[in-house]
């Protein structure tokens, strides 16, 4: 099957800075893919190269099999990008903005889909309002709608939830999940790692223009993060048998690595044997944030320092 997005050894320099230093990755149709990394990692640059806003110095980028330079019209028809920066044209209303955007893609009579987008993104009451009069979060919703007017098979969201209220964040994710279920590939960048963990089946982490991790979310979590038992108790010291990998948190609770329910049971049994009175107990699931921090710390040494 043709990949939704194919990036091969893409490089982009700004002066002496390698914004993209040999990026390769593939996103399959229908996938929900996260592109994570600290500020300046090169996420937006990669997305811009995909949309033809930035010309890569070398390497190849394809969207639904179409080269973004040679076959740019087909590539762009297949791609919807929600830009990171809020931009708008103050000359037009929300509906006009969406009608114009449809027209640029050669779509006329797109009114039904525009109505649906307005409704799904809770913009209905603002349809006739001038773009200038919208709040920041509303402008961002219009950007989302604009990226979707042509129903692209590949949707890229560059930090779509920055500055968006909780309610809309939930409506937005419900909508994007639905689009994903209908077969659209979604590429998401975000600094809210719990969003990525919850939504995305595969994750690429970038740092200084390079990919430093690329795997299924579940496998990254399993490899780099552990389930921990957080337990606070009184009446005895930590039994020696539980000391391996244990750490004491600031609130006086112990964090004990556990692999599954059986280990939780045996740890509790040991504590009881030692005469501990348990005051507080919880099992914490693996967190992407932990994975992220570890990977970025490890990648630190390998990453080139820009001159």
């Amino acid at each position: 099957m043709t990949p939704a997005v194919e990036v091969r050894d893409v490089r982009k320099r700004y002066g002496k800075l390698d914004a993209l230093d040999g990026i390769s990755l593939t996103v399959e149709p229908g996938e929900f893919f996260a592109l994570l990394g600290p500020n300046g990692a090169g996420k937006t640059t990669l997305i811009s190269a995909l949309g033809g806003l930035v010309r890569a110095d070398s390497g190849e980028l394809r969207v639904m099999g179409h080269d973004v330079i040679r076959d740019y019209r087909e590539a762009r028809r297949s791609l919807g990008i929600v830009p990171q920066e809020i931009v708008f044209d103050p000359f037009f209303s929300v509906r006009e903005t969406l009608e114009l955007q449809s027209g640029y893609f050669g779509l006329r009579d797109n009114g039904k889909w525009i109505d649906e987008l307005l409704e799904r993104l809770a913009l209905g009451p603002k349809a006739g309002a001038n773009m200038r009069s919208l709040s920041g979060g509303m402008k961002r919703r219009v950007l989302v709608a604009q990226a979707l007017v042509h129903r692209p098979p590949v949707i890229v969201l560059d930090e779509p939830t920055a500055g968006v209220d909780v309610e809309l964040r939930q409506t937005l994710w419900a909508f994007v999940r639905e689009l994903n279920a209908a077969g659209h590939a979604i590429i998401l960048t975000t600094h809210y790692l719990e969003e990525a963990q919850e939504l995305c089946s595969r994750i690429a982490m970038m740092k200084a223009g390079r990919i430093v991790a690329l795997d299924e979310t579940a496998r990254l979590l399993a490899a780099f993060s552990e389930r921990v038992l957080r337990v606070k108790f009184a009446g005895c010291e930590l039994p020696a048998a539980l000391a391996a990998g244990a750490s004491l948190a600031a609130d006086g609770a112990w964090r004990l690595p556990v692999e599954g329910a059986a280990q939780v049971e045996s740890a509790l049994a040991r504590l009881r044997e030692a005469g501990a009175r348990i005051e507080h107990l919880e099992v914490a699931e693996p967190e992407l944030e932990e994975v992220f921090v570890k990977i970025m710390a490890n990648a630190g040494e390998a990453a080139p320092v820009p001159a």
């Binding site: 806003l53 708008f88 955007q101 640029y104």
Partner: peptide, 10 residues
Amino acid sequence: GNIVFILLPP
């Protein structure tokens, strides 16, 4: 920055 509306379509 709204030039992207013209640069992103085909």
